[in-house]
Write a protein that binds this DNA or RNA. Structure first.
Lengths: 264, 264
DNA sequence: CGGCAATTTGAGTAGCGTCAATTATGGTGG
DNA sequence: CCACCATAATTGACGCTACTCAAATTGCCG
């Protein structure tokens, strides 16, 4: 399932040439950049080069219920994190792409809470929990970078909640696509031409709807000229219309325009 | 809105006497325990006692969109984290109680992604981001404790996704109550007698249903003898039945009993 | 080329959201 | 202490959306 590379191997293919030299600001993929640098010989504060693992499409990086021995950072490719519900339904909890952290949610109980499945052939950095604890002391910058990445996971969780909270399923899909577009932009890719790595079922699971409904919504948005859909390749033709669709419609009485004067 | 305490003030009331001496294992509220110890004089690795803030019910600890100057750890009381959607709907993203971390999701962009509102009179520890970065180097244990707490937030996010993903709203409420029960148990309280700190609207928002539906589901579960409901005080009369209700019902064809043989 | 899975489309029904009205609760001031 | 108001919570009725079951089509990999 998981092929282990010697480590500082000059690994080829698999990742597009998007190693943009973004300045030493703070956020986007600083953690990944540092790991890449270390991999290329510039070790920085790291004592040893990071471990690189190759993960074939459909195989898993870690399994729900397994003891947490290490966490991972996506180096290339894409993953879905799923939870098996009691009735056997596979609930998709998040999607992870380059620079995202996998397995951090297992730290609090020492057991992985999700299963991370590769949606395509991918590579990840493996960091043992022991390494993590040590690294954070020796390298404040690395610590900040890791915190930033974990923070991003929390933000994504909140946005996913927003998606699932929408009343109309068309709204949910629109929000999902806007989210995908935003992420593509952050990643330096086109925010208009999206290549979805996950199937309709996975999208449906994330959004909390039936996969037929996802399919129907794609068709509707395409018929209205908002999208051009060809299987997993989606082009956003009319972003304004898509955003309009992403704006939810909740009843007036549930709105929060209710300002309570706080006592002084 | 926010009253600032001198700091190592012997603060009274507000928090129940649940300072159980759980051994130095790893998980549940280690971060909080360390902060409490520091507050009581036993500074440990901290150079100064932690800052304690008092937050009145209905007021906020941090506001969505504001720059992140510090994060907070709930010392007593309860909070909801909300996001304002474009249409003015207030989406509840999570509930936080004692030992939970607030504001960590803002680190990656430097701007708070949620608004944290106190559901009752509460107190929190305030940690400036500067402090956080420094502390983690000087104290590995504190770092681990923080990571554990953040990890728990990710786990909660996944469970919330599970709740929202359920088809039937009765199932969603059942899952929510099981979750509340689990948390109460972790906290050392009774898993049967729950005192919900949030209103029906907030529950409805978290579950992605109308608040009338929440009310109806409470009534149904009460009529079936599963619960005894008196406003925000809920007693679980038949946990087995509640768990049975929490088991979702998805169509067979969407189940994930589909094992693809991975190439070797 | 054949088979399996993914996707799409259709039809019927159940369940939930919306609107609306009533009751309960808690806090404030007279 | 009680009356009063605002908000929260409950219950009812109705329409519409999305889930379910079902079948056809496409796409993909061996």
């Amino acid at each position: 399932m998981i092929a282990l590379l010697p480590s500082p191997v000059a690994d080829v293919g698999c990742d597009p040439p998007i190693d943009s030299p973004s300045p030493s600001l703070t956020c986007p993929g600083e953690l990944l950049q540092r790991l890449r640098a270390a991999e290329s010989g510039r070790l920085g504060e790291l004592s040893v080069p990071p471990l690189v693992l190759r993960v074939a499409m459909g195989s898993v990086v870690h399994l729900e219920g397994a003891r947490v021995s290490s966490i991972h950072v996506v180096r290339s490719g894409a993953f879905k994190c799923v939870r098996m519900l009691e009735d056997g339904y596979e609930q998709v909890v998040s999607f992870a792409e380059r620079a995202d952290v996998l397995g951090f949610d297992g730290l609090c109980r020492g057991v992985h809470q999700t299963t991370a499945v590769a949606l395509e052939d991918s590579t990840v950095y493996g960091l043992s929990v022991h390494e993590v604890n040590g690294l954070l002391q020796t390298s404040p910058e690395l610590a900040r970078a890791l915190h930033s990445a974990v923070s991003r996971a929390l933000v994504d969780a909140a946005r996913i909640a927003d998606m699932m909270a929408a009343v109309a399923s068309e709204t949910r899909l629109a929000r999902f696509l806007v989210w995908c577009s935003d992420r593509a932009l952050e990643r330096g890719e086109s925010p208009r031409r999206l290549h979805l790595r996950m199937g309709r079922r996975d999208i449906a699971s994330l959004l909390g709807v039936a996969h037929e409904t996802v399919s129907r919504c794609f068709s509707l948005l395409a018929r209205d000229g908002v999208l051009q859909v060809e299987n997993r390749d989606v082009e956003i033709l009319d972003r304004a219309a898509l955003v309009a669709n992403s704006r939810g419609t909740r009843r007036n009485s549930d709105l929060a325009i209710r300002h309570r004067a706080a006592a002084a």
